[in-house]
């Protein structure tokens, strides 16, 4: 768990169905579509994990396991972990481990481990062998954790191929650089500026010689004319 981790924050948004054990002052806005200012004892509301955790620790609400961690969904997972789409449960494993310690449910931890182990083998294989196929659909069915593993494997298999074909040395275009190409002259100037400071000094000297070039020419022509006239 890290305070600034984006995935941790999003994982904790998982909704839990909570029952209020006492009347609660001025919390009516937690309940959607209710006009009351207070919450009455016994009201059931879906609260995000981070809030349910705090309130349940103080014994103010009683929380229930969310649906994807109840027996129905678990049975499906046990039957064949590989065919279940995690599209709507992006943080199934992450929030699952939090929930298993929250509800002190050790069996959930074991189940998550088994499911992850079974799915991992397939994901690992796919990441190394699925080249030049459309992977968006496959990736969409994974949880965040699995997707990270897949992307790492996928990238390393591309790097390996590059190395084997002796392309590793090649300097690639960096897609991160958004380069302003408004006009030709400005792009040249920018690229020179970006190179370093030395070049700008040499550039100014070269441009001064360039500008002096036509002047010289006209001077030479004038002299020539004078010579011609004299002759």
């Amino acid at each position: 768990m890290s305070y600034l981790n984006i995935d941790d924050i999003l994982a904790e948004e998982q909704k839990l169905s909570c029952k209020f054990l006492y009347n609660a002052y001025n919390l009516g806005q937690l309940e959607e579509g209710s006009a009351d200012t207070d919450i009455e004892k016994g009201t059931k509301i879906d609260l995000p994990y981070w809030l349910a955790y705090v309130l349940a620790k103080k014994g103010l609400v009683s929380a229930e396991m969310p649906t994807p961690y109840q027996q129905d969904f678990k049975d499906k997972l046990i039957a064949d972990p590989n065919v279940i789409s995690m599209r709507s449960h992006q943080y199934y494993d992450k929030i699952g481990t939090m929930l298993s310690s929250f509800f002190s449910d050790r069996s959930l931890n074991l189940l998550l481990f088994r499911v992850f182990r079974d799915r991992f083998l397939k994901i690992y294989n796919q990441s190394l062998n699925l080249r030049e196929t459309d992977i968006t659909k496959i990736v969409g069915n994974m949880t965040r954790l699995e997707r990270n593993i897949f992307e790492n494997g996928y990238r390393s298999s591309i790097d390996y191929d590059k190395w084997r074909n002796r392309k590793g040395e090649k300097i690639e275009r960096n897609p991160n650089i958004i380069f302003p190409v408004a006009s030709r002259s400005s792009s040249v100037n920018n690229s020179i500026n970006s190179n370093n400071i030395n070049s700008s000094s040499t550039q100014s000297s070269s441009s001064s010689t360039q500008s002096s070039q036509p002047k010289k020419d006209t001077v030479l022509k004038k002299r020539k004319r004078i010579f011609d006239d004299e002759s």
Binding site: L27, L51, V54, L55
Partner: peptide, 17 residues
């Protein structure tokens, strides 16, 4: 008291969040 405690706990967590 639970009546006020649940309110202040919730507000505090929301601020923190």
């Amino acid at each position: 008291q639970p009546y006020y405690l649940s309110n202040s706990m919730t507000y505090f967590s929301v601020i923190y969040r």
